[in-house]
């Protein structure tokens, strides 16, 4: 790796101060499993001047449960989340999502905060410098997203993320970045209506993931995730998490779906259905949720909802299959 400075932060305040000192030219290192690969391959448009290690901050790796819900420190390890009895019992969708990440070794090292803040996995963006790279994609000063003309089998079926955070209807943007949001946990958190607490604000998970071609989240360059808060799930809530991959371990999602249905005698009172890896950010299937409310959940309702969930999709040349798979996953999320 090319040289960088390295600082161990002893408190969140110190980490934030260091971040602002470097004026956007420093990166936070938590588990390091994503960041170090990106540094090794010299993926970033600008190589960071410094890394700020937050593993040295005490007390950020808690998993606490009370009557209001679950609070998870940003430095809680994915393996610890998977093993946590309370997560397994009451928030199993989160346990499943965390378990679906990468490999056992990576889950031993990676943190939930890092998972949420990780960079996209797009193979044009990640193309390593040393074998004829970088590929000059939209994120690196190119005019177009490389996925438009290139192999886009894993890219977005719901349009592109705009170059900047100027709000645009995703479905209509053809000029942005087609990389999909990489976080498996994000999808589950939105389905559970979790909040993300950062050093600057607290906001619903759904608003935290606002993709642009520069970032998958709303985090400012001097802001970091502190805590994840998941409200106590409603009585009768049925949680499901499903991730389609070519292989069970290691792979990033081709499509993932997290759902939380609140049923009363088979009637759907509330539904939250979230799709991952289909768009630059997790996609709430609001139309699908709406058509279910007040109806007895059966296979027909599931099929109808699945069609609604994918109604706005606009696949690229090579990823129409993702639409089909996404429908199947939504259907299964609703009707087993």
């Amino acid at each position: 790796m090319k040289q960088f400075e390295h600082h161990d932060a002893l408190s969140i305040e110190e980490a934030v101060a260091l971040l602002s000192d470097y004026e956007g030219k420093a990166k936070i290192i938590a588990g390091g499993t994503d960041l170090l690969g990106a540094l090794r391959d010299e993926v970033f448009l600008e190589y960071p001047e410094a890394l700020i290690n937050i593993k040295t901050i005490d007390g950020l790796d808690y998993i606490r449960s009370d009557e209001k819900g679950l609070a998870i420190g940003a430095m809680a390890g994915l393996a610890d989340i998977v093993k946590s009895p309370v997560v397994k019992k009451e928030y199993q969708m989160l346990a499943e999502a965390a378990y679906s990440v990468a490999t056992p070794q990576i889950r031993n090292m990676a943190t939930i905060g890092g998972n949420l803040a990780q960079d996209v996995r797009c193979w044009f963006y990640r193309y390593p410098r040393r074998i004829g790279g970088p590929m000059v994609c939209l994120r690196k000063g190119g005019k177009f997203c490389s996925a438009l003309a290139g192999d886009n089998r894993y890219h977005s079926i719901f349009g592109a993320a705009a170059l900047s955070d100027i709000s645009l209807d995703l479905g209509k943007v053809r000029k942005g970045c087609f990389a999909v949001g990489p976080s498996d946990i994000a999808v589950a958190l939105i389905a559970m209506d979790a909040s993300i607490v950062t050093t600057k604000r607290s906001l619903p998970a759904e608003l935290f993931f606002k993709a642009t071609a520069l970032s998958s989240t709303v985090l400012d360059s001097d802001e970091l995730v502190k805590e994840i808060e998941i409200p106590k799930l409603p009585m009768g809530a049925v949680q499901r998490y499903d991730k389609f991959t070519l292989r069970k371990p290691i792979d990033f999602a081709v499509v993932s779906v997290a759902s939380m249905l609140t049923l009363n005698n088979g009637v759907c009172e509330d539904a939250r259905i979230v799709l991952g890896a289909v768009a630059p950010e997790p996609v709430r299937a609001r139309k699908a949720e709406q058509v279910m409310k007040g109806r007895i959940v059966d296979e027909d309702v599931a099929l109808e909802a699945a069609e609604h969930a994918l109604a706005g999709s606009s696949p690229l040349r090579m990823n129409e299959y993702k639409v089909e798979i996404a429908k199947v996953l939504v259907k299964h999320a609703i009707w087993g």
């Binding site: 044009f124 193309y127 074998i131 790279g133």
Partner: peptide, 11 residues
Amino acid sequence: NHSTGHILNAN
């Protein structure tokens, strides 16, 4: 990658 000749999954 048929538009550029890069091998996209060299990892």
